[in-house]
Simulated scan of single mutants.
Amino acid sequence: MKKLLLSLSFITIILLGCENEGLDGKNSLIDMTIENAGENCSNEGIKIVSGIDLNGNNVLEENEIQETEYICNGNNASLDFSSYVVKLSQSGTNVPSGIVIKNDLSLTITWVRESSGSYLGTFDMPLDLTKTIATATPPPSIRNVYLQFVNDNSIRVKTEPYNNIYQFTDTWNDLILEIKTFN
């Protein structure tokens, strides 16, 4: 009986000690972009920046960047790839429309609006996803763009505005989508 009372007292002390929750900390953020050939990477690469989200807006701003790293392609690296680059715009419940900037892939994408801020692009031919990447440059009104290859014939694009986290939005202009397939 003494052991049971002692055990219950110990559990009560532990539970009472866990009543108060601590304060949430600030989020760490990482952002990756394509680094064009130049001072940092002589033969293109990827720029990775990281830091603490000091103002809590889920955007890594210049004054919050604490570290910058580059992963560069080697000097003799073969950058043999084909790409599709399009400037997309979307309004209301309409499907996105775009101006194709570059199309070495000879790719055609047909867009469907799945729901608010979610769009599915279907390719007219399959892509080898083991050799393909997609990047997006959001317009100023969009906080984040989420890209997902659904399969080798389609990509999903979701747009998140600055004013609502995890609430996807319609109506934006000048989203740049790039799909690269390396040979």
Rank of each mutant, 00 (worst) to 15 (best):
I34W: 12
P139Q: 00
S78D: 13
N173P: 00
C18T: 15
L88N: 07
N75E: 15
K131W: 03
G98I: 05
P139A: 00
N144Q: 11
N94C: 00
L120G: 01
V112K: 15
L88Q: 00
N36W: 01
K180I: 11
S106H: 09
T159P: 03
E64D: 09
D24A: 15
E39S: 12
E67Q: 14
D128L: 11
T169I: 11
F168T: 02
L147W: 06
F81E: 09
G51K: 01
S42F: 07
L8N: 08
Q90E: 12
E62R: 10
N57R: 12
E62T: 15
V85H: 02
E62F: 08
G45N: 12
L15C: 11
N75A: 12
C18A: 14
W111T: 00
F149V: 05
R156F: 00
N43F: 10
T68E: 15
V85L: 06
N183M: 11
A77H: 11
S82V: 02
Y162H: 13
S83N: 13
I99N: 14
Y84P: 06
Q167L: 08
K102Y: 00
S115G: 08
E44N: 04
L8D: 08
E35L: 09
M32S: 08
T12F: 15
D128G: 09
N164F: 14
K3R: 12
E44T: 04
M32C: 06
G92D: 06
N55A: 05
V59I: 15
I109C: 01
E64K: 05
E21Q: 14
W111N: 00
F168W: 00
G92L: 07
I71V: 14
E61K: 04
R113M: 10
N164E: 09
I165D: 09
L15H: 03
N151H: 10
E35Q: 15
Y84E: 00
L129D: 06
N40W: 07
Y166R: 04
F168R: 02
V100T: 09
N57V: 11
L127G: 11
N55E: 09
P126F: 08
L105A: 04
L4F: 13
I14M: 13
Y146Q: 02
I142K: 02
V85Q: 11
T181M: 13
V112Y: 13
E44Y: 07
D104M: 04
T137H: 06
S89A: 12
I30R: 06
I99Y: 02
N144Y: 06
A37T: 11
G117I: 01
T137F: 09
G121Q: 03
N183I: 06
L107P: 05
T93F: 13
K87G: 01
E69I: 08
L23H: 13
R156I: 03
P139C: 13
T12S: 14
N73W: 07
W172F: 12
I30A: 09
I52Y: 02
T110L: 15
L127H: 10
Q148G: 02
T171P: 10
S83G: 01
Y146W: 00
